[in-house]
């Protein structure tokens, strides 16, 4: 059942990606990217990544859309015309895709419990959450306890990005808009 829902959602994802590829209206591209984020969040939920799904919905569908729209406003979001078919790019892309498929074909099958991934460290964390005084949500436990310095570093990255956006946009003619953007990126 999970596999079926997963497969349907993935197919929809492929369709939306192709639509984004062929769409020339930037506004529609941003809209489709928002829909893509919602679908991707649903897939993450089906794949049992609850926290990731929540973050992806908030970040992908919420903040990214707002950022893209702000940029579209500042750059006037014109349509563009250009030769569509680039042979070298397609060659590179097909080669990369073939190699990826070739490399991934030997990976363990989807959803098998005996995969090497599931046998080494993960049971330890699960046991710790079960038997010691850890929060029941294992992801929270790992993120906020075992690796809280990592999370601190992540916050630093966001802070740095906010400062970077502020510095980049500082000397512009319309300071109001740039402040708006910086705030947006800051809220993460």
């Amino acid at each position: 059942m999970e596999i079926l829902v997963d497969a349907v959602l993935l197919t929809l994802l492929v369709v939306i990606t192709l639509a984004i590829l062929f769409q020339r209206n930037l506004f529609a591209v941003v809209l489709l990217a928002g829909a893509y984020s919602f679908l991707m969040a649903s897939i993450m939920l089906v794949l049992d990544a609850v926290d990731v799904a929540m973050t992806e919905a908030a970040v992908g569908a919420g903040i990214s859309t707002a950022l893209f729209l702000a940029t579209l406003y500042l750059t006037h979001g014109k349509e563009y015309l250009q030769p569509n078919f680039k042979f070298q790019s397609i060659l590179v892309v097909v080669l990369a895709g073939g190699m990826l498929i070739w490399g991934m074909w030997d990976m363990p099958e989807f959803g098998v419990m005996q995969a090497p991934l599931h046998e080494n460290t993960a049971p330890g964390y699960l046991d710790a959450s079960k038997n010691h005084l850890m929060p029941p949500n294992v992801v929270t436990a790992v993120l906020a306890d075992y690796r809280s310095f990592d999370t601190l570093g992540e916050t630093t990255v966001i802070f740095t990005a906010g400062i970077g956006v502020l510095l980049i946009l500082r000397g512009r003619k319309k300071p109001k808009k740039s402040k708006n953007k910086a705030e947006n990126s800051h809220e993460t």
Partner: peptide
């Protein structure tokens, strides 16, 4: 397995920071 979830949670947040910088 919860460990990839943790990694990706970090990656998402860093991703949106990159995106904001790129758009600026």
């Amino acid at each position: 397995n919860p460990l990839p979830h943790v990694l990706i949670l970090t990656a998402i947040v860093v991703g949106v920071a990159t995106l904001a910088l790129g758009l600026a």
